[in-house]
């Protein structure tokens, strides 16, 4: 039996990691797989660091992901990508949004936001950077950044696009289906464009 596919969604309370996790779980259900999904509510939701964990496979036991075993990390904010990067498996892929939200110690001036987070994630974790806030704006609603990122992840995970779209449609509120599907496509396409660029880049590295 294969071990489950572990997906970690990291972000800031209020960014919609929970909805994104629900779409992933719904997709797993549509694909006929076992799934477990774990989230934390309550105090941490008030602008704190939040993670949602999704595990998909033939049979899933634990609802949580161990350090170094996430096959995919979807980071909704740069610093949160860095915070949870140690959760990524050596074989794993990280997708990180360009979104930058300063935590309260930085706003108060008692800590500083690290420089060059995105390039660090690209260099050390081969992270794929997605301009989710901009693409969400293009989709027609800045609050759909989360679904842009789900689109990007779906492309990387190589599932059937139709099944993914069904998962989005069945999860988001009915009146927001269209805008979310647009966001999903923009995220999906952003990765395919990135993939073409990457091929060139990888060749250069090999030379």
């Amino acid at each position: 039996m294969h071990s489950p596919t572990n997906i970690l969604l990291a972000g800031v309370g209020g960014q919609g990691t929970i909805l994104a996790g629900k779409i992933l779980s719904q997709w797993a259900k549509i694909s006929g797989m076992d799934v477990k999904y774990s989230e934390i509510h309550g105090m941490s939701q008030r602008g704190g660091s939040v993670i949602t964990q999704v595990r998909i496979g033939e049979k899933v036991y634990a609802p949580v992901i161990d350090i170094g075993t996430a096959l995919y990390i979807l980071a909704f904010e740069q610093l949160e990508g860095l915070r949870y990067a140690h959760m990524l498996s050596p074989k794993g892929t990280m997708i990180v949004s360009t979104q930058r939200l300063e935590p309260s110690p930085v706003l108060m001036g008692v800590a500083s936001y690290p420089e060059g987070v995105l390039s660090r994630l690209e260099a050390e974790f081969h992270a794929k950077v997605i301009d989710a806030p901009n693409l969400a704006q293009k989709a027609g609603n800045p609050r759909t950044s989360n679904v842009v990122l789900v689109g990007a992840l779906a492309m990387v995970m190589n599932g059937s696009k139709e099944e993914w779209m069904r998962a989005v449609s069945e999860t988001v509120p009915p009146k927001y289906v269209d805008v979310n599907l647009r966001a999903f496509h923009l995220g999906w396409n952003a990765i395919s464009n990135l993939k073409t660029e990457m091929k060139d880049g990888e060749e250069r590295v090999e030379r």
Binding site: G48, R83, H86, Y113
Partner: peptide, 10 residues
């Protein structure tokens, strides 16, 4: 985990 500023709820 890397040395990054904490993000407490606010």
């Amino acid at each position: 985990s890397p040395d990054v500023p904490s993000r407490p709820p606010v």
